[in-house]
Design a protein around this nucleic acid. Structure first.
Lengths: 128, 128
DNA sequence: ATGCATCCTGTAGTCGCTATAGGTTCAAGC
DNA sequence: GCTTGAACCTATAGCGACTACAGGATGCAT
């Protein structure tokens, strides 16, 4: 059994975020001590770590939650899980493409800017 | 002179967002007709378009505003403008690197998932 | 005169936290 | 037993950049 601070350290989820997750129903409500402090089992810490890993992969909280509930069933359909992963991957790839365009636009814009000049090609572009 | 809907069409900024920009001081307060409707000059539409272009390039609103005010000075220092662009470019590049890592992680995770299987390597990874 | 598009204000919701205020509880050292 | 300080508690507000109502006023064409 772990206090919230320890659960935070073990899972990599901040204390405030753990409480937020509980409020929002992302994770189950933690047990409490007689004085009202939250207490976490190893399984609960595992749940937090699972959610954090999903978040690190860019899954929204709702999807993280769904994946965790799939993970808790012993009849989890791998195909359904895969679908979330594939869709997330598609989104990430789309974002990369967008950001690449953005990067080259910024490269072009800044290319001809010079220190001290009061005639700025970047501003000209933004204005036109 | 243009009504807000027309200004929106001309600038590519939604009506709600234009009002939001005014509320937040991103743009100046628009003139009003006798009945209280906002009215936009071509210059005001240009301002909106400028802001939208900055946003499209990923600049935060504050920076967009700053760039617009630089653009309005006739003594704008091109070096200062360039600094914003370069810093934005660096951020975009950092994000691309992160997203690439994410994409390859997702590719690995989903690679061994198969339709219909109840033994899911992606969930196993997320759990472990 | 009617109807519909457009406009107005004000407020709340989105997402995923983060921060603050103001309080209680626990554990260690003296 | 007492004090101190860390860790905990709740409740609320703020972030960024919108978006989405609700409930009403206005403008314009038929």
């Amino acid at each position: 059994m772990h206090a919230i601070g320890e659960a935070s350290r073990l899972s990599g989820v901040s204390v405030e975020t753990i409480r937020y997750y509980e409020r929002e129903g992302v994770i189950g409500t933690a047990e409490r001590t007689a004085s009202g402090r939250r207490v976490y089992t190893d399984a609960a810490v595992g749940e937090l770590r699972f959610i954090r890993r999903c978040r690190d992969l860019g899954f929204p909280l709702q999807v993280a939650r769904k994946l965790y509930s799939l993970s808790s069933e012993n009849t989890a359909d791998c195909g359904e899980v895969r679908a979330f992963g594939v869709s997330q991957l598609a989104e990430v790839k789309t974002k990369i493409v967008e950001l690449r365009k953005l990067a080259s636009a910024l490269e072009e814009l800044t290319a001809n800017c010079a220190e001290g000049s009061t005639n700025c090609p970047m501003l000209d572009q933004l204005r036109s």
